[in-house]
Design a binder for these strands. Sequence first.
DNA 1: ATGGTGGGTTACCCA
Length: 263
Amino acid sequence: MQVVKIATWNVNSLRVRLPQLLVWLQQNPVDVLALQETKLTDDAFPHAELEAAGYRAAHSGQKAYNGVAILSRLPLTEVSRDLPNLDDAQKRLIAATVEAPSGPLRVISAYVVNGQAVGSEKFDYKLRWLAALSDYLGQELSRHRHLAVVGDFNIAPEDRDVHDPEAWRERILCSTPERSRFRALLELGLVDALRQYTDAPGVFTWWDYRQAAFRRNLGLRIDHVLVTAPLAKRVTEVGVDLGPRRNERPSDHAPVVVHLAPA
DNA sequence: ATGGTGGGTTACCCA
């Protein structure tokens, strides 16, 4: 049986990032790649280019904003694009079952609401969206033993995930209500794969385009891979690939990659 | 205290 490699990457426009994505997949032939912020309608999704690279894909997108996808070298079944319990026009969630030789793996690609500023209307929408995600994951966990929720959570779970915790204290991405909602996801029975792998501070996945934040490593860890306990036992490696963030015209996020030993 | 950068579209946008 083979190791299964899964990754997640907020590409901030798949139209702009597709060439970089194809290069990255060639160098990092992961089995599954979840994307966020494709910013494409479904009819504009580059299925042909990805198929030529060996990947089929399920996408849920819209014009200009949001958009999530799951790319896979293995068959995808049971694709779902709904977030129950929330009347939401924004395309922020897609789920599919990856039919791996070692057994089915449920993958959910999520682009959590950014929230703009603590206390704003968008912040309220973020908290409601996270509550609906919790409800949905509760249902999914009752059906799928090997499940991974991956994507841009727009939450830095702890101070060690923030370059300057005092400057970010109770600000968007770091506030207590957001961190409580993130902990609630873990309390459903999910494990933060990166934190199972390492206690190291200063592991970041996002750096603002402004103020040369990447060069100065002013980052936050807001992209995550959450796995069920049976999957957590199979995790052998978790890493953030800084390579794509060094590209010209990069996404502001870096990919997170997880290796799973055979079941 | 502000604004900076880079996606998107042509907006009092979104991150």
